[in-house]
Design a protein around this nucleic acid. Structure first.
Length: 429
RNA sequence: GGGUCGGUGUCCGAGUGGCCAAAGGAAGCAGACUGUAAAUCUGCCGGCUCAGCCUACGGGGGUUCGAAUCCCUCCCGGCCCA
């Protein structure tokens, strides 16, 4: 970052630009202050790492003197964007949605500056304007400008139309009109001339630009970023277990850190560029490190540290780093009490009564109760397969039990499933 | 509203009266090898009081010694027609 390089060039060199609607986008980004917006889908109660790219883009805009506008789609969220979706979505009810919105706005706020004069950020809810427009007005003034023929040709719609088994409802079909209207509204009220988004938003963005051109005879612009994919080629936020949330309640900072630390070689470079502010020089050093001494995993460490710091703060970043090191050291028993304490501070805790522990608790029950297995059957299987550890030593006997004698420094028992899932057992009472 | 095809485990998808907790694939989980990577290999992959039992093939009802499979009905979806 910094002012020596233009915003467009910076984004380009980081590989953050997939497409622009017009070459003039470069001039606009590097020119005098404008307003630009990105929409966020409030279908979950937290943003996840996939959103980070867009959040950072808003921040980039701000750093270069532009006004970033984040639109949390309270209105569009009720409808559902068909882009990239192979099937009709379940509609969210408005109560859930408004809860989600509150949380998402709070999260966005952490990354943007709301008090820096002209370029102060805005977080808006499109329900504020979409909720007001009447059906007749909508059909006369907005929908009139859309050709069904063109809409049908858009990829997001076409794929659903061609699918034998899956159709598309009119509700989702008309989603595009709502997002287009958002852009128009922002153009009118906030002089917003640029919309950014992930590349799957291309169709929605261009149709907004068209609407503005038709209704106001003025130019607006769009820019998309490449979708940042996981190493297996899927999007972030797809499977429920694989989603890395920004909310520490949903994904603990420890897990968050671990996710990035475990990034595959093929994707670290891209992640570093998308998810951190690390500059050119360091980036090329890290690329080199990955190429030449991959086993040191310097890029992964730098990535994990940097992202965790941005999202969860420097203090937390340090903590989880210590935890990671301590928990992966072979001899947990030799750790000093305070290092151990720090290491397990962030781990989930399971309490057992002193009585029960004195009598001894079966490992199968313990792993299940501690949440390390979803059922006792699963617990049994994991143990039998050698994936269960008590105080870092493997327990493969289903009949084994844990008792007071297993308490280590600090009066805890450390349970582990597989390589990375820890639960701390503490005595209650 | 009519016709027609379909609704199977996390997902895709086979199964068309018993041999079905249900082929195959993907995802996931554990192990081995590594670098807390990838690839590869092995095992697991509904639940429980675990050599047995219970719950499951959209919901409900029925036929049958026996049904994911046949019949009725309802719900949901695709396509065609109105």
């Amino acid at each position: 970052m910094g002012d020596d390089v233009g915003l467009y060039e910076e984004m380009m060199s980081r590989g953050l630009i997939a497409q622009v609607t017009d070459e003039r986008v470069a001039e606009i980004l590097d020119g005098s202050s404008i307003s630009a917006y990105i929409g966020f889908d409030p279908s979950a109660d937290s943003l996840h790492v996939g959103h980070l790219v867009q959040i950072f883009n808003l921040r980039r805009l701000q750093e270069h003197g532009h006004r970033p506008i984040a639109v949390a789609g309270g209105g569009t969220g009720l409808i559902g964007d068909p882009s990239g979706k192979s099937e009709e979505r379940n509609l969210l009810d408005s109560e859930v949605l408004s809860q989600n919105l509150i949380k998402i706005r709070a999260q966005l706020s952490r990354f943007l500056d709301f008090d820096c004069g002209e370029s102060s950020a805005l977080v808006l809810n499109n329900a504020d304007w979409l909720g007001k427009i009447s059906l007749i007005d909508y059909l006369r003034d907005v929908a009139k400008h859309f050709s069904v023929n063109q809409m049908v040709a858009k990829d997001s719609v076409k794929s659903r139309l061609n699918e034998r088994e899956q159709g598309i409802s009119f509700t989702e079909f008309s989603y595009m009109l709502l997002q287009s209207y958002d852009f128009l509204h922002l153009f009118d009220n906030f002089a917003c001339r640029l919309q950014m988004g992930a590349s799957d938003q291309w169709g929605n963005i261009t149709s907004g630009i068209e609407l503005i051109r038709k209704m106001r005879q003025q130019a607006a612009y769009g820019l998309t970023t490449p979708l940042v994919l996981k190493a297996d080629g899927t999007k972030f936020g797809k499977s429920e277990s694989g989603t890395i949330w920004i909310d520490p309640e949903k994904t603990s900072p420890y897990q968050f850190y671990q996710f990035f630390l475990r990034a595959e070689d093929e994707v670290v470079g891209g992640y570093l560029r998308s998810f951190t502010w690390i500059g050119e020089d360091e980036l090329s050093e890290l690329d080199l490190a990955t190429a030449e001494q991959a086993s040191k995993r310097l890029a992964q460490s730098a990535l994990a540290e940097a992202v965790t710091e941005i999202v969860h703060g420097p203090e937390m970043a340090r903590k989880v780093q210590v935890a990671a090191r301590a928990l992966f050291s072979e001899d947990i028993l030799s750790l000093s009490p305070d290092v151990l304490e720090m290491a397990i501070e962030d781990a989930p805790v399971h309490y057992v009564s002193a009585d029960a522990l004195a009598r001894g608790v079966g490992v199968v029950d313990l792993f299940y109760a501690a949440g390390l297995a979803n059922s006792k059957s699963e617990s049994r299987k994991v143990i039998a397969q050698g994936g269960a550890y008590v105080n870092n030593s493997r327990v493969s006997d289903i009949e084994a039990s844990v008792s007071s004698g297993d308490l280590i420094v600090g009066g805890v028992v450390l349970l582990r499933r597989g390589k990375k899932d820890y639960v701390v057992v503490r005595v209650r009472g």
